[in-house]
Amino acid sequence: MDNKMIGAIGSTQLNSWNQVSNRGKAEAQITLFTVPKINDSQSIVTNIWEELAQTYNMQNATFDEVKEVATRLYKAGEITFKEVVTLTFDYEKATNYIKQHAPVYVSANFTMYETEADKSGRRDWIAEFGARAAKDRQYGNLVGYAAKTRILHILQQFEK
């Protein structure tokens, strides 16, 4: 900007512009240091992990319990949709579908699970997702490995 242009704007206009400009910066700086108040919904979100950990044992849970945990964490905004999908993919239904539609290619005792469930359908989901992650890594499925490892870290927050 040349000197003629500055003279045309005038010192009063420049001072007004500087005040407005600096006021915006000062407000932004104050906002950066404001601590938001925790309302009831934020308090609930903060306590969701503790509440779920007291209710569910991911080392001895049914698939329905895993689905309940995933749904509640997702509704609280604590996990992503992708994580819900990974947690709640029904390996039992997938196993049965494969057995039904490709019986020639799979044995009768085929399962997609990596670990055993007890007679009531309870399984150690931390061990299950750890084994799934290890299998993905072994086969070079790094995207699957990363997804399963993330789920493993989520489930480990429930260890007692």
Rank of each mutant, 00 (worst) to 15 (best):
E114T: 08
E116F: 00
R137N: 14
A102I: 09
A133P: 01
R122W: 04
R132I: 13
Q138G: 03
K75A: 10
I151Q: 01
A146F: 12
L87A: 00
K82T: 05
L152V: 04
A131M: 13
A61H: 05
T88F: 03
Q59L: 03
Y105I: 01
N60Q: 15
G140W: 10
D136C: 09
V69G: 04
P103V: 07
H153G: 00
R123L: 15
D64W: 05
M112N: 09
T111Y: 08
A61C: 07
A146H: 06
Q138V: 00
G130R: 03
I126G: 06
I79N: 09
L73M: 05
V143N: 13
N109C: 00
L152D: 00
T86H: 03
T115S: 15
Y139M: 10
I79E: 11
I98A: 02
I154G: 04
I151T: 07
K99H: 08
Q59W: 06
P103M: 10
Q156K: 10
R72L: 13
Y105M: 06
Q59D: 12
R137L: 15
L142M: 08
A117C: 14
K93D: 06
A134T: 13
V104Y: 13
G121P: 06
E78W: 01
V104L: 11
G130N: 11
T115C: 15
N141A: 03
G140F: 05
I79Y: 10
V104Q: 15
A70K: 05
I126D: 03
K82H: 03
G77P: 01
G121Y: 14
T115P: 14
K148G: 00
T80A: 11
Q100R: 12
D64C: 00
E128R: 09
Q100D: 12
L73Y: 02
V85G: 01
D64H: 04
